Computed example of a mutant assay.
Amino acid sequence: MPRHLLTGLELSADELHALLDRAIELKAAPHSSTALRDTVVALIFEKPSTRTRLSFEAGIVELGGHPMLLRSGELQLSRGESVKDTARILSRHVQAVGVRTGPDELLEELAAEGDIPVFNMLTAGHHPCQALADLMTMRETFGTLEGLKLAYVGDGNNVARSLALLGGLAGVEVAVAAPDGYQLEAECGATLTDDPAEAVAGAHAIYADVWVSMGDEDTAAARRAALEPYRIDDALLDRAAPGAVALHCLPAHPGEEITAEVLYGERQRIWDQAENRRHVQKAMLELLLAAPR
């Protein structure tokens, strides 16, 4: 049976820590593995992408594989072909498939109907590859994940959910501050509050995401009004643990969810996060597809 990465909880805690160890090794020696030699990996993009596309394409090439990019509208899925039939065809031509889409159900059906690994490049419910890169960045910054706290401030969205789930699996304390109507569900295991100052108390990393995501444009004004108090600035960082850093999954809108001073200043590891997507995804693909050789 193929292994999948749909939410990240397919990993055990030991596997997660080993994956982060491997990602750090691959960052130190980007061309040291040819684990995907003679391997084709399909990348289906139904939503726009910068970091996901760049990091997956570059990483697959570094591992010796071939990334097959498939944009929205290029598959017969867009004209009514079933997910079941698409999964069967993909399984005959490629060795794995990643999908960046809306419904989690599409990914789940691809995994159920195909014979190849399926991995989540973003869905409405989850963004596990981003959370893996975030944990890697925290490991790099602080040397360990043990005893760390991460505070997410803003909309309790797919990124917040993945941080809560995978952060909990890694042993990181996760707190989420969001206004009423935008909060994460309690089942994710994070500490929930509507007070950013409460969430960041003792935190080693403070995390933001955009206030208006893809698909939220119709409610942009209401979202900005509700999330106005949930901005990362130097004053909020000052309330966190000494040496705390700001994180952001990008793209950013300086002046909204994060100030330009923090985004481009010395108290952030945001650009390291963006690079670490490539390294941690390479480790994930090795795990799903092949042993290093």
Rank of each mutant, 00 (worst) to 15 (best):
residue 34 T to G: 10
residue 34 T to W: 13
residue 34 T to F: 13
residue 34 T to H: 13
residue 35 A to G: 06
residue 35 A to K: 05
residue 35 A to M: 03
residue 35 A to R: 06
residue 35 A to Q: 02
residue 36 L to G: 09
residue 36 L to R: 06
residue 37 R to D: 12
residue 37 R to F: 11
residue 38 D to Q: 11
residue 38 D to V: 04
residue 39 T to V: 07
residue 39 T to D: 00
residue 40 V to L: 13
residue 40 V to P: 03
residue 40 V to I: 14
residue 40 V to F: 11
residue 41 V to R: 01
residue 41 V to D: 01
residue 41 V to G: 00
residue 42 A to S: 08
residue 42 A to N: 06
residue 42 A to I: 00
residue 43 L to Y: 04
residue 43 L to H: 09
residue 44 I to G: 06
residue 44 I to T: 06
residue 45 F to A: 00
residue 46 E to S: 09
residue 46 E to G: 07
residue 47 K to M: 06
residue 47 K to C: 01
residue 48 P to C: 00
residue 48 P to D: 00
residue 49 S to L: 01
residue 49 S to Y: 07
residue 50 T to F: 09
residue 50 T to V: 11
residue 50 T to A: 11
residue 50 T to R: 09
residue 51 R to L: 03
residue 51 R to I: 05
residue 51 R to F: 07
residue 51 R to D: 04
residue 51 R to S: 02
residue 51 R to G: 04
residue 52 T to N: 08
residue 53 R to Y: 01
residue 53 R to M: 01
residue 53 R to A: 03
residue 53 R to I: 02
residue 54 L to F: 12
residue 54 L to T: 14
residue 54 L to V: 14
residue 54 L to K: 09
residue 54 L to Q: 11
residue 55 S to H: 01
residue 55 S to Q: 03
residue 55 S to D: 02
residue 55 S to V: 02
residue 55 S to P: 07
residue 56 F to S: 06
residue 56 F to A: 09
residue 56 F to W: 06
residue 57 E to G: 07
residue 57 E to T: 13
residue 57 E to N: 10
residue 58 A to N: 12
residue 58 A to E: 14
residue 59 G to R: 09
residue 59 G to N: 07
residue 60 I to P: 06
residue 60 I to V: 07
residue 61 V to M: 10
residue 61 V to N: 08
residue 61 V to T: 12
residue 62 E to H: 10
residue 62 E to V: 02
residue 63 L to K: 00
residue 63 L to W: 00
residue 63 L to E: 01
residue 64 G to C: 01
residue 64 G to F: 00
residue 64 G to Q: 01
residue 64 G to W: 02
residue 65 G to F: 08
residue 66 H to T: 13
residue 66 H to G: 04
residue 67 P to V: 05
residue 68 M to A: 06
residue 68 M to P: 00
residue 69 L to S: 07
residue 69 L to I: 09
residue 69 L to K: 03
residue 69 L to C: 02
residue 70 L to I: 12
residue 70 L to K: 06
residue 70 L to T: 04
residue 71 R to T: 05
residue 72 S to M: 12
residue 72 S to H: 15
residue 72 S to C: 08
residue 73 G to T: 01
residue 73 G to V: 06
residue 73 G to E: 04
residue 73 G to F: 04
residue 74 E to R: 13
residue 74 E to W: 02
residue 74 E to I: 04
residue 74 E to F: 05
residue 75 L to Q: 09
residue 75 L to M: 13
residue 75 L to Y: 09
residue 77 L to K: 07
residue 78 S to V: 04
residue 78 S to Q: 10
residue 79 R to H: 14
residue 79 R to K: 15
residue 79 R to C: 12
residue 79 R to S: 10
residue 80 G to F: 13
residue 80 G to R: 08
residue 80 G to A: 08
residue 80 G to Q: 05
residue 80 G to Y: 05
residue 82 S to V: 14
residue 82 S to Y: 14
residue 82 S to Q: 14
residue 82 S to P: 15
residue 82 S to L: 15
residue 82 S to T: 15
residue 83 V to M: 09
residue 83 V to I: 15
residue 83 V to Q: 14
residue 84 K to P: 10
residue 84 K to C: 13
residue 84 K to S: 15
residue 85 D to E: 15
residue 85 D to F: 10
residue 86 T to W: 10
residue 86 T to I: 14
residue 86 T to L: 09
residue 86 T to A: 11
residue 87 A to W: 05
residue 87 A to M: 03
residue 88 R to A: 12
residue 88 R to H: 11
residue 88 R to F: 13
